[in-house]
């Protein structure tokens, strides 16, 4: 009994990292109808950045987080403004192709810089846990879940109550009326992509703190974000939390039952089911 509770707890805590990742993915999808296949590689890149900052400057990843967030925010803004905006009003296939290419470039860039070997962000606390009521709370994952709740709340407050947030929501509901209000859609999109890149970077740092990673690790992260986003609902502020917890628990329980050789089998299984059940439906814009 106790063992199973611990397993479920592990799943819940794993949901934090999954959820932060999906927070970014879902925002891009919900606002811009953009399915970003480079999403996972963005996160792995952020993990490498955190690793370098730790190794070279001795900067703790949590202290580096605001800096990495801002770097990715700026980079995402420029990327969207300069490149992605050029194809985003075309069909979905074009944006898929572009982000697929981006993923390819990023992954190879990382191989060039860091080799294809597995690396990790080695902090003293990376593998330690808190203990409470006889249960084990891995520090990094517990913090990830707390961060997810806080980030979801902040994102919701921003989207709901700020002038810019309202502009982002309006644009997600229709670009033509948004333009008629005087909004500059390319700017709204660049801001959205910048913000979600920053969030993706935070997710990537948490991933790097709790897993060994290589440049090829981005793909499964993208698939995970995709599944969590569908489970929680596209373009909702709290969906990533809900979806993250569901997938986290299913994954944890599933890998115990099926054995540890089958990591990700639940995620990919769910992906398959989703694609079979709603092959076209999932590609539509979120009904906000």
């Amino acid at each position: 009994m106790h063992l199973w509770l611990q397993i479920i707890l592990n799943g819940i805590l794993q949901g934090g990292i999954l959820g932060i990742s999906a927070l970014a993915f879902s925002l891009q999808w919900g606002v811009m109808n953009l399915i970003n296949l480079a999403h996972g590689s963005f996160q792995i890149l952020a993990a490498y950045v955190a690793m370098v900052l730790l190794q070279r400057l001795g900067l703790d990843p949590f202290l580096a987080m605001p800096l990495v967030f801002l770097i990715f925010l700026a980079g995402g803004y420029l990327l969207q403004f300069g490149i992605i905006n050029r194809v985003i009003s075309g069909n979905l296939f074009m944006t898929l192709l572009l982000t697929y290419g981006l993923d390819f470039v990023l992954a190879n860039f990382m191989i060039l810089l860091f080799t294809a070997d597995y690396k990790s962000v080695n902090t003293p606390y990376a593998n330690s846990s808190w203990h409470l009521l006889g249960f084990q709370f891995p520090i990094v994952r517990t913090l990830a879940l707390i961060f997810l709740v806080i980030l979801s709340l902040l994102l919701w407050l921003f989207l709901e109550y700020s002038r810019t947030g309202r502009a982002i929501r309006a644009t997600s509901m229709g670009t033509e009326p948004a333009r008629l209000m005087g909004l500059k859609i390319p700017k709204v999109y660049a801001l959205t992509f910048g913000l979600s890149s920053g969030l993706a970077a935070i997710g990537g740092i948490f991933f790097g703190l709790s897993n060994a990673f290589s440049p090829a690790a981005g793909g499964p992260l993208t698939v995970g974000a995709f599944v969590v986003t569908i489970l929680g609902g596209v373009g909702t502020s709290w969906g990533p939390l809900v979806g993250g917890l569901i997938l986290g628990v299913l994954d944890a329980v599933g890998s115990v039952i099926l054995g540890p050789t089958y990591v990700n089998i639940i995620t990919f299984g769910l992906l398959l089911i989703i694609l079979i059940l709603r092959p076209t439906g999932v590609l539509g814009r979120a009904a906000t």
Partner: peptide
């Protein structure tokens, strides 16, 4: 210059008040 478009094109997921405020965005 402002257009009230055919079919209204409201921001359907937003409240009435938010729609009105969007009109004053600039």
């Amino acid at each position: 210059i402002n257009l009230t478009p055919q079919g209204r094109l409201l921001f359907t997921g937003m409240s009435v008040e938010e729609n009105l405020l969007m009109g004053a965005y600039l």
